[in-house]
Design a protein around this nucleic acid. Structure first.
Lengths: 133, 133
DNA sequence: ATCGATTAGTTTGACGTCGAACGATTGGAG
DNA sequence: CTCCAATCGTTCGACGTCAAACTAATCGAT
């Protein structure tokens, strides 16, 4: 974003820290993204699959909080996963407002073997970074 | 995203660090976003206005690199700013491929007085955060 | 002078993201 | 039992974001 604000030393330090933080996150995210794209997944999609892989079928609301997204957004992300038959949705019989999200076999096949492979790029991106921070 | 990966200590530490980084960035960004929304600006729009406020009229490409966005994306962001008459675009007579972006009077009126007010929330978000990091 | 390679921006298509408004369902107060 | 408020998820509208394909313009080598 550029730090051209002519403020006090404190202000300049704060902006600097923010820019560093943003860049660090962007750098790691870029690596992760690149890694995920090869599996045909976005970060949010991966988050969903990872969550239900480890925790089992979940209500949509819990899932949204888990991956830090809005309920509205999760609807979209799940639509895209469901279109590829990686997840399926079903009403909770006990409370018919609730939608339970579960992995399909195809989803399990995709995310299961992928998890171990995914960790390495994350570690690499971080190790290339944390010294500077 | 949740750290449920059952890996080595190193892997768990790396994922932890990543999650912390992501959350830190999200937290600061949320505060900044909230602050900007009151001015009716997105982060990218703010970045554009801030850049040309400090640096003067810029070619679109330079602007894209400055705010770390793709050229395609900048086209969209500038469209939205131009629709509100906050910036204007003109061809560079010396190289007619180049589009020069400049602030309008309305843009200057909006961003000029806003800059000092904008710094405070950033500092506040950061100071509430950096101890944990 | 010409033609191919390069560069600046735009368009297109796909996905993400949110807030606000909305329909369906549930649970509680009376 | 009835009705109203709260909750869950979807829809809608607006914006952001990128890669890839494209147009226009420029530059360079022949």
């Amino acid at each position: 974003m550029g730090t051209h604000y002519p403020g006090t030393d404190d202000e300049i330090r704060a902006l600097d820290a923010y820019v560093k933080l943003a860049r660090a996150h962007a750098a790691v995210d870029a690596t992760i993204n690149h890694d995920l794209i090869e599996a045909g997944l976005t970060v949010s999609q991966f988050g969903v699959l990872e969550a239900i892989w480890h925790l089992g079928p979940l209500p949509q609301g819990a899932l949204a909080r888990k991956i830090l997204r809005s309920a509205a957004n999760l609807t979209t992300v799940l639509d895209n996963l469901a279109r590829r038959d990686l997840i399926e949705r079903s009403r909770d019989p006990a409370d018919r407002r609730v939608v339970i999200v579960r992995l399909t076999d195809a989803g399990r096949d995709l995310i299961g073997p992928y998890l171990p492979r995914h960790v390495r790029p994350v570690m690499h991106a971080l190790s290339a970074l944390t010294p500077g921070q």
